[in-house]
Amino acid sequence: MSALVPAAEWLRNHRLSLKEIDCVIALMLKILDGKCKMNEEDKRLTRELYAHCVTLEGERLKNDLHALIREALDHPSAQLLDLVYEKRVLAETMISRPVMKAFKARLRREGLLPKKQPSAEQA
């Protein structure tokens, strides 16, 4: 099992495709919206990855979402979080489930996120 590496180092050695940049943006929207099911460590690592992607546009998700995310992080309000919710739902319709699952699996396989531990049911 590989040791976890900081996002900046990971990104130096791993390129993100445009679809994967979409996934990073969508995950950040999910975290802000409170709908992300990742554990706290995975969320922290995802936020760290996002921090290194704030100038990157995805295939479908563009720079306007970076401005919204920055505003929601700096000045969260009910109105702004409603907009985050809307953008998150829209983003999720633009990214297929298999693409998102493959992206998260890559992050685990290549050492940015910890590998999932099997649950008692799976063991």
Rank of each mutant, 00 (worst) to 15 (best):
V5K: 14
D33G: 07
E57D: 15
L49F: 11
K62V: 07
K37N: 06
V99N: 13
A7T: 07
A72E: 03
R44G: 05
P114N: 10
N39T: 03
G34L: 11
L11D: 02
R106Q: 02
K115C: 01
K43Q: 14
A3N: 14
L83T: 15
L16R: 13
V54T: 14
R60K: 15
M94C: 07
R97L: 06
L4H: 12
N39H: 06
E41A: 14
S119V: 02
A51H: 08
L68C: 08
M100S: 05
Y85R: 14
K30T: 04
L11Q: 06
L27N: 12
H75W: 02
P76N: 09
L16N: 07
N13E: 10
K19P: 00
P98F: 09
R97C: 01
I31D: 02
K19H: 03
E40K: 14
M28T: 12
E110S: 11
G58E: 03
K87S: 13
E59K: 11
K35R: 15
L29M: 12
E110N: 10
D82G: 13
C53K: 05
D22H: 09
A51D: 07
R109L: 05
E20G: 04
E86I: 08
K19Y: 02
E48Q: 13
K37L: 04
T46M: 07
G111D: 11
K30W: 01
R109I: 00
G111L: 01
K35D: 01
F103I: 05
L49P: 04
P76L: 12
R109Q: 12
C23N: 15
D42Q: 14
G58L: 01
S17R: 10
L29I: 10
P118Q: 06
I31S: 02
K101T: 09
K101V: 11
I95Y: 14
K104P: 00
D64H: 13
N39R: 04
K101Q: 14
P98G: 02
V5E: 08
L29V: 07
D33K: 02
G34D: 03
D33R: 09
L65I: 04
L107S: 09
L45I: 11
M94S: 10
S17E: 08
K43R: 13
K35W: 04
R60N: 11
L4Y: 01
E110I: 01
V24Q: 04
L65T: 15
K101M: 09
A51L: 03
A26E: 06
Q117F: 10
R108Y: 05
C36E: 12
L16W: 12
M94N: 04
E92I: 03
S17A: 06
S77E: 13
I69R: 08
C23V: 04
Q79R: 15
A102E: 09
N39A: 13
S77T: 15
E20A: 11
L29C: 10
E86L: 13
R97S: 12
A120P: 01
R108V: 03
N63Y: 03
R47L: 08
G111K: 05
E41G: 07
R44I: 01
D82N: 14
